[in-house]
Simulated scan of single mutants.
Amino acid sequence: MNRWSRTVHMVVASMALVCVPAAAGVAHADPAIYVPTPGVESTYFEPGPSAVTERLGFGCCDSTGAKFDIWYPTGLSATRHPIVVWGDGTNAVPSQYAYLLRHLASWGFVVIGTENQNTGSGVDIRKSLDYLLAQDDDPTSMFFGKLDKTAVGAVGHSQGASGVLNAMRDSGGAIKTAVPLELPAQHFCSTSTSCADTRSLTTGSVFFVNGSADGLISPSQQLVPWQAEGLQSNQAYYEATPANLAKVWGTLNGPNHNDVQGQPDCAAASVPCTTGVYGYLGYPTAWLLAQLCGDATARDAFRSGSEFFTPSPNWRNQVGNVTG
């Protein structure tokens, strides 16, 4: 059952907060599809209270001439909204991830993605941010004075997962956190600029997520030391991320490379896809709210020994260093 329409009519009329409190979810997912962990994951697995508007080709352009697509809370509040910039996988466009991007917007984020299908360098992910920040400064824009420039996160899939790490590295601190989904092993990089190297990160935080059935492009572990072979696994990327940065890694049980494109199931996704987008909803949303909006309940779920690290039928390989 699809929980969404083009504009989602789940508005909480009296809502003043943009970073939505944990009790605000109102819709219900089919529990037979994916049963989230009770607590933070189950809360943010549900859509947030905001109706969502989607506008494809909203603005122009990145360095290649590609347009920007955008998802945002329909009733933009007087309180400034946090931002999420999106990175496409190779040969994909943001609308292929619309279910996930609508979900984030329902929790108060303004989400923007370039239609560029090669985002690995991160350059055009940063272009999308530059465009949106310019909208905040433009008195003629619907986003004038509506965006929180200090609360920017980046989420991306496959090549776009490399792209959001590169965009954060090169953003001068503007991008505060990154959530790379199905981060490719370095030997799959098409060019040196499309590779991610987490050793080069100096600011920000990272939540790595991969699917257990994506063992070729985004393997969980590698068999030889990453110091000798390079960063060829999510474990290697996690270990190479400097210890002074907040970092967490977890593997979803079951998803293949393109499950994140589920809308919400695999019917409209690129192949391979096995379970749909469900597992990518709750904890990534909670991470963004924790890192960008100071949601203490969400942040507590990622502390060592807390909810995210408990035995789960949905997750494995959970590791992290979040303490404060």
Score class of each variant (00 low, 15 high):
residue 213 A to S: 15
residue 100 L to Q: 12
residue 60 C to Q: 12
residue 122 G to F: 01
residue 296 A to E: 13
residue 252 L to G: 04
residue 180 P to E: 02
residue 274 T to H: 09
residue 171 S to E: 05
residue 32 A to V: 10
residue 55 R to T: 15
residue 230 G to D: 05
residue 28 H to M: 12
residue 84 V to A: 11
residue 183 L to V: 10
residue 137 D to M: 06
residue 137 D to E: 14
residue 31 P to E: 13
residue 49 P to Q: 06
residue 276 G to T: 09
residue 87 G to A: 09
residue 145 G to H: 08
residue 172 G to Y: 06
residue 112 I to H: 01
residue 190 S to C: 00
residue 84 V to R: 07
residue 62 D to M: 02
residue 299 R to I: 02
residue 210 N to C: 08
residue 103 H to N: 06
residue 88 D to V: 10
residue 103 H to V: 08
residue 46 E to S: 14
residue 120 G to Y: 00
residue 292 L to Y: 05
residue 307 E to D: 06
residue 206 V to P: 04
residue 145 G to N: 09
residue 176 K to C: 07
residue 221 Q to S: 15
residue 257 H to S: 02
residue 47 P to R: 12
residue 313 P to G: 12
residue 126 R to E: 10
residue 47 P to M: 12
residue 262 G to A: 07
residue 147 L to G: 00
residue 225 P to V: 09
residue 70 I to P: 00
residue 95 S to L: 10
residue 115 E to I: 05
residue 31 P to W: 07
residue 301 A to N: 02
residue 164 V to D: 00
residue 296 A to S: 15
residue 199 R to S: 11
residue 125 I to H: 04
residue 198 T to C: 08
residue 188 F to I: 06
residue 116 N to F: 04
residue 98 A to C: 00
residue 54 E to N: 10
residue 75 G to T: 11
residue 308 F to R: 11
residue 285 T to L: 05
residue 50 S to K: 09
residue 103 H to A: 06
residue 211 G to E: 02
residue 85 V to Q: 03
residue 93 V to H: 07
residue 73 P to C: 03
residue 60 C to D: 09
residue 117 Q to L: 02
residue 119 T to D: 06
residue 245 L to A: 07
residue 305 G to P: 01
residue 233 S to D: 05
residue 68 F to I: 13
residue 299 R to F: 07
residue 61 C to R: 08
residue 75 G to K: 14
residue 318 Q to F: 08
residue 171 S to T: 03
residue 48 G to Y: 03
residue 136 D to F: 01
residue 143 F to H: 01
residue 35 V to D: 13
residue 41 E to D: 13
residue 100 L to S: 08
residue 45 F to R: 00
residue 229 E to H: 08
residue 146 K to F: 04
residue 95 S to K: 12
residue 150 T to Q: 13
residue 48 G to C: 04
residue 243 A to D: 15
residue 134 A to W: 00
residue 6 R to W: 11
residue 276 G to N: 04
residue 305 G to M: 07
residue 15 M to Y: 00
residue 223 L to V: 13
residue 212 S to H: 07
residue 145 G to F: 06
residue 41 E to S: 08
residue 123 V to W: 06
residue 241 T to H: 03
residue 109 F to R: 04
residue 114 T to I: 03
residue 250 G to L: 12
residue 169 R to S: 09
residue 231 L to I: 10
residue 289 L to R: 12
residue 65 G to T: 05
residue 250 G to F: 11
residue 94 P to K: 01
residue 148 D to M: 08
residue 248 V to A: 10
residue 311 P to Q: 08
residue 144 F to N: 14
residue 109 F to A: 05
residue 61 C to T: 11
residue 323 T to Q: 14
residue 202 T to V: 15
residue 6 R to D: 13
residue 279 G to T: 07
residue 168 M to P: 04
residue 204 G to I: 06
residue 152 V to K: 03
residue 277 V to K: 02
residue 168 M to S: 03
residue 84 V to S: 06
